[in-house]
Write a protein that binds this DNA or RNA. Structure first.
Length: 509
RNA sequence: GAGCCGUUAGCUCAGCCCGGUAGAGCAUCUGCCUUUUAAGCAGAGGGUCGCAGGUUCGAAUCCUGCACGGCUCACCA
């Protein structure tokens, strides 16, 4: 049986391979032949000794406003390198565009400048997709485009496969994600999103570093997947013969560091949650968690408000921008509302005050509350109020039973000193004054354990080692987590998380 | 996990309603063309129509199942 399976899969793969060859062969074979020919005449199709001295964007910004007459006075030659992205052959001359990391620029090669052999070589061997080094002076065409009048050129890299179609570009979503390099080549706005992403991350680091936060790295392999309620990815360590989990949050390690004296600390990194995939969710995503001692959750509202405004204004030059068809105004101060008060406004005070009515209301819109009052409240809030919070809004007053790591409010023990930040109807940040009472923490974990017994799948796991750290004393501290991918989505007007993750998770091919 | 939509040439898509063994543009190849930029003109090659069944004299087209993908919803940040 097994043997049969292997044979079938062999046949399948062989035939696939054959098909693949048939489909690819014609064009690829042509180009492979060109490579052989190049080698036979002593030309390296993968040269690495060309040093470009100029860049497309810089040349265009310094010379595109210079008139054709004045350009004739510029005797200087310029050298650039890049990928050929378009060729227009005119017989005795050829126009082409090359693209370097800064942008694209046109080149013009003509027989009476480079000679018959050089032109013929170009027409014979240079294809769209190849890398070229060019050298020449600048001029403007009839249509006014700044163009390099090629005096010398070198083929630097021969490409074997054709680039995506030039009119429509690369639109197929799956190909765009699977072969992101093609997406980056043919869709400049995609590249722009990812450049913005790194700029956002740099700005966040800059902001925190300026305020004496220390960046650290904590384990990704956790013996207990704590710090959040989510199903983890399991893995296995051979030498230790033990099960490990990919982290679902860095929280508990960062708090151990606060115990150890890092009063201001943050980690910016990947976390992993073994849950569904959607336009809002990728199994691995990037978050930042930061902790500040002697601060409260209210202090962190101010800090996060400042941080996000700083990033937004530096990146976009404004605090007002569009996300989808929603207009977002980030001007300060940001609104602050209470979960329970805003829900009362929405469904009536009597519903929120009575467990029975609350659960009934929750069930009526399909919420699984499992008899947890806090869960019913939070879920109702998210569905009925959260979606309408377009301008940045701090939502505070979370029920204690859905906040097992957060400090209990001094005047109301049912409420945690915690807030979430909503922008464009989405949760962007989650923060609280940290629970540093080890006895209370143990009880909260035990309560989670009871929920697990009742069948709740996603609970905060008991972490004895973490409680031990708290027993040594953790200074009063507030901490926050910000979903980087969602922030990037917001600031780049991206409708899907896959547009801001270079290689989003897809089913294997 | 549920609903809706899609899968036809290397790429982007038409053809499907009303069954009669495939079509456009780009790309490729061959000519012509020294200021084009979706360059142009003339010609050529390229497809087991996602897979497997069924109905039929005959299926890209109708029916069923499966695979893959997208969108929406649910869990979640």
């Amino acid at each position: 049986m097994i043997r049969l399976k292997i044979i079938y899969s062999l046949i399948y793969h062989l035939s696939l391979g054959k098909n693949y060859q048939i489909m690819e062969s014609e064009l690829v074979e042509q180009r492979k032949k060109k490579i052989e020919e190049l080698k036979s005449i002593g030309i390296n199709p993968y040269a690495n000794d060309f040093k470009p001295l100029h860049e497309a964007k810089a040349l265009i910004s310094s010379y595109s406003s210079v008139s054709e007459e004045e350009l004739k006075g510029v005797s200087e030659d310029f050298s650039l390198a890049g990928r050929v992205i378009a060729i227009r052959d005119f017989g005795k001359s050829v126009f082409f565009h090359i693209m370097d990391r800064t942008g694209k620029i046109q080149g013009y090669i003509r027989r009476d400048v480079v000679g018959d052999d050089a032109l013929r070589f170009f027409k014979r061997f240079v294809d769209i997709g190849d890398f070229l080094g060019i050298k020449g002076n600048l001029f403007k065409t009839k249509t006014g485009e700044l163009t390099v009048n090629v005096k010398e050129y070198r083929l630097l890299v021969k490409s074997l496969r054709p680039l995506p179609e030039k009119w429509h570009g690369l639109k197929d979503v799956e190909t765009r994600y699977r072969q992101r390099y093609l997406d980056l080549i043919s869709n400049p706005e995609v590249k722009e999103i990812f450049l913005k992403r790194t700029r956002i991350i740099k700005l966040i680091r800059h902001f925190l570093d300026e305020r004496d936060f220390v960046e650290v790295e904590t384990p990704i392999l956790h013996p207990v997947a704590g710090g959040a309620a989510a199903r983890p990815f399991k893995t296995y360590h051979n030498a230790l013969d033990m099960e490990l989990f990919l982290r679902i949050a860095p929280e508990l390690y960062l708090k151990r560091l606060v115990v150890g004296g890092f009063e201001r600390v943050y980690e910016l990194g990947r976390v992993f949650r073994n849950e569904g995939i959607s336009t809002q969710h990728n199994p691995e995503f990037t978050m930042i968690e930061l902790y500040q001692s002697y601060a409260t959750y209210e202090d962190l509202m101010d800090l996060i408000e400042e941080l996000i405004c700083f990033v937004t204004e530096t990146l976009l030059g404004t605090l007002r921008f569009k996300y989808g068809n929603r207009e977002i105004n980030m001007n300060r101060p940001w609104k602050r509302i209470s979960v329970i008060d805003s829900l009362k406004e929405r469904v009536g005070e009597e519903v929120v005050n009575s467990d029975e009515k609350l659960f009934k209301k929750a069930e009526s819109i399909g919420i699984e509350h499992r008899g947890i009052r806090g869960k019913a409240i939070v879920e109702l809030f998210e569905r009925m109020v959260g979606d309408e919070l377009v301008d940045p809004t701090f939502v505070y007053g979370f029920p204690i039973d859905v906040s097992p790591l957060a400090r209990r409010n001094d005047s109301n023990p049912d409420i945690a000193d915690r807030f979430e930040l909503y922008i464009a109807g989405r949760e962007i940040a989650n923060a609280f004054s940290e629970l540093n009472d080890p006895v209370d923490q143990r009880e909260r974990f035990l309560k989670q354990l009871q929920l697990k017994m009742k069948g709740e799948q996603e609970v905060y796991e008991m972490d004895e080692d973490f409680i031990k750290a708290l027993e040594y004393g953790m200074p009063p501290t507030a901490g926050a987590g910000i979903g980087i991918d969602r922030l990037v989505m917001l600031l780049t007007n991206s409708p899907s998380i896959r547009e801001v993750i270079l290689f989003p998770h897809l089913r294997p091919e």
